[in-house]
Structures are given as C-alpha cells and as structure tokens.
Simulated scan of single mutants.
Amino acid sequence: MKFSIIVPTLNEEENIQLLLENIKSLKGDYEVIFSDGGSKDKTLSIIGDKHKIVNSKKGRANQMNTAAKVSVGEVLLFLHCDSILQKDALLKIEEKINKGYSVGCFNIAFDSSSIWMKICGILSNLRVRLRQIAFGDQGIFMKREVFYEVGGIPSLPIMEDYELSLRLRKSYRICQVDSRIKTSSRRFIKGGIFSTMWKMQRLQSMYRRGVNIEEINRMYKDVR
C-alpha cells in the first residue's frame, strides 16, 4: 500500500529537521510532499532535495489540497510539521484499511510532562471516539477516493479540520489506529493551558453557530 504524507509548511526551520529524521525512520511504502506557503526562513533549504516540494497559496487548506493534486498514494496522511510518528505508524494505518476503514487518525500525546496536557490528550482521543471529530494535530488520513468524494480539504482559513470531520462522519467511521502521534504543546504553553483550551472550545462553538469565519480566524490568531 502506497502512502502520500502531506506536510504544510510555513517558516518551520526550528521543527523541520526533527520531522525529517522522524519520517526517515518510518516503515512502509511512502512519498513525502511538503507544501510550502511562502517560507522566508531556511525551511526549504533544510528540506533540500530529500522530498518533493510544491509551492502553494498560504493557508493549511490550500497547501494540503495543492499537495494532494500531485500525490500518487492510495492513502493520504496529512501531518503537521511539529508532530512525530512512531516507526510502525503507516503499518498500523494499513491494518485499519485492511479491516475496512477508510478514514482515521492517531492517538495523540503532547510533548509535555504537565498533567493538564496529558488530560488534554486524553480528552482529544475521547472526542474522536465519542463525537467522531479529529483535528489536524492528530494526523488525519483517508483513502484517496474519499478525499475527492468529500471535495478535498474545506477551503477555510481556520476550522478546516473540524469541517472536514463533520463531512467525513456523515458517511464514514473515523477510526483511531493503535499508534501514538506526539504533538507540540507550544501553543498551549504560550497562551496558557487553561486559557487556550477554553478559547478553542469557544471558537468551535462559534463555528457551529455560524459566526463569520473571518472573525473566528482573527480570534484564533490571537490564541496562537
């Protein structure tokens, strides 16, 4: 089974080397496509010619959709630049695909020893199981045909992963593979753990109520 690992980048020189080392350790058949939204730092030079790079209009949705168009994998895995996978991650996805699943994500754990960040990870995993909502930092994957069936990544400046899950869960069960993805807690540490968690819940509630997406995006930038 061929995988296409798609990573949107924008000025990620501090994180990209660790991701490159992590990707190199993965087992399975895969290509990696970095979709860059206009990095001004050393991100692209660090990647070099190790993997395919495509240039895209800024914005995660735009960048992921641009990369998907040139991908060749049977399964697309959308990965954040500050996330780390276990070596058997792709093999674990393949197991789920062979069992009949078409969409899923990983079990998330944050790179922090804080008990509150551990609780945040537990709640994030419960959200997938109970509400069928997966966020981008959990490493969303899907079969290529499913990607096109739902119209790709929703073209939104924010909440694209939330809206994607809402669309996917109408027809598919979003599974979690038996493998962990370790994700940076920098956003929570910078903004304050409780404050950031509360603001994210508020933004999701605003989105469900139909608040203008540009207003939500402005507030999200304040969170980051």
Rank of each mutant, 00 (worst) to 15 (best):
K52M: 09
I53Q: 01
K57T: 11
K58P: 09
K58A: 12
K58Y: 14
K58H: 13
G59E: 01
R60Y: 14
A61M: 07
N62W: 06
N62C: 14
N62T: 12
M64L: 14
M64H: 01
T66D: 08
T66V: 07
A67Q: 09
A67N: 04
A67R: 06
A67P: 14
A68R: 08
K69R: 10
K69Q: 08
K69T: 04
V70T: 02
V70L: 04
V72E: 06
V72T: 01
V75R: 02
V75D: 03
V75T: 00
L76H: 02
F78R: 02
L79C: 03
L79S: 00
L79M: 01
L79H: 07
H80K: 07
D82K: 12
D82L: 09
D82V: 09
D82N: 10
S83I: 03
S83D: 04
I84G: 02
I84W: 03
I84K: 02
L85W: 00
L85S: 02
K87D: 04
D88W: 14
D88C: 13
A89P: 01
A89F: 10
L91Q: 10
L91P: 03
K92I: 12
K92Q: 09
I93S: 07
E94C: 14
I97T: 08
N98L: 15
K99E: 13
K99N: 12
K99M: 15
K99T: 13
G100T: 13
V103G: 02
V103D: 04
G104F: 11
C105Q: 09
F106I: 10
N107M: 15
N107R: 15
I108P: 05
A109W: 05
F110N: 03
D111L: 15
S113Y: 14
S114E: 06
S114M: 12
I115Y: 11
W116D: 00
W116P: 01
I119K: 09
G121C: 15
I122A: 14
L123G: 12
N125Y: 13
N125G: 12
V128C: 10
V128S: 01
L130R: 11
Q132M: 13
I133Q: 02
I133L: 15
A134H: 06
F135W: 02
F135M: 11
G136A: 12
G136W: 10
D137A: 13
D137F: 11
Q138R: 14
I140M: 08
F141Y: 04
K143V: 09
K143Q: 07
R144Y: 06
R144S: 04
E145S: 11
E145L: 12
E145H: 08
V146F: 01
V146L: 01
V150C: 02
G151N: 07
G152M: 05
I153L: 02
I153E: 00
P154W: 06
P154V: 10
P154D: 02
S155R: 07
S155Y: 01
S155P: 06
L156Q: 03
P157I: 13
I158A: 00
I158G: 00
D161L: 13
D161F: 13
